[in-house]
Amino acid sequence: MRRSEWSLPLGGDATDRFLPWIIWLLVFIAAIALVIALALGGAAERWRASQSGVITVELGAAAAGNLPIPLLIDVRLAPTGGATLDQVRAAVAVVAPGAQVDDAGAWLAPLARTVSAVRTVGYGVLALIGLASIATVVFTSTTGLAVHRDAMELLHLMGAEDGFIADQFQRQALIMGFLGGLAGLILAAGAFALFGAMARGLEAPLLPRLSLDPAGFVLLAALPFAAAILAMLVARLTVLRALARLP
């Protein structure tokens, strides 16, 4: 009966195993929302980049005649040192007086606004999910800890310092929060692998590619840590507040 150190699992009562399940679900949803918002933002960005500097030349009926040329021509301007819109317009007017020359940006602008609006909505949804997650973790932790009131009061009466008691419960919350968050993240990764496989099977070019930049991966990987730290802080504050009310 020798132990290297006293560390009793004082907060390890089985009653708040509910917390990791809630966190699991929240991290799963948050991960999916995050990936979609980031990927949507990335896709919009790539698409706009591919379309900027494109000029559309629309040839009038006179020029079309029997000539084997398309009615619409996309002209891609070199990013630097190339012709300007006016120069192209002048050049086209010489060979095809009736032709109309449009800057793609002109009709792209409202579309780009739409895409950025969608992206803003995506981030908004993400923020809401974040707030809902925080509220849920706070609520679950507080109600979970209410079950431990007796144990808390007992330790208090036996002369445990407030900080010591808080440590016991916050450690438990940290572990539970992290395990739940990790499970949620792994399941989200599974869901995206499935989605990717399905998208490839459909060969549907219209589906946006769900690729993330490194910053996106960092954000995603931070989710379980954020959940764990949140659960820990809530546990600590809840315990300290409950103890402050005891004589």
């Binding site: 020798r2 132990r3 290297s4 006293w6 009793l8 036996m158 002369g159 445990a160 010591f164």
Partner: peptide, 15 residues
């Protein structure tokens, strides 16, 4: 052992 734990005692003869 709880009171000994709260008193900050470590394992050994206490156990």
């Amino acid at each position: 052992a709880l009171p000994l734990c709260l008193a900050g005692l470590r394992a050994g003869s206490v156990c």
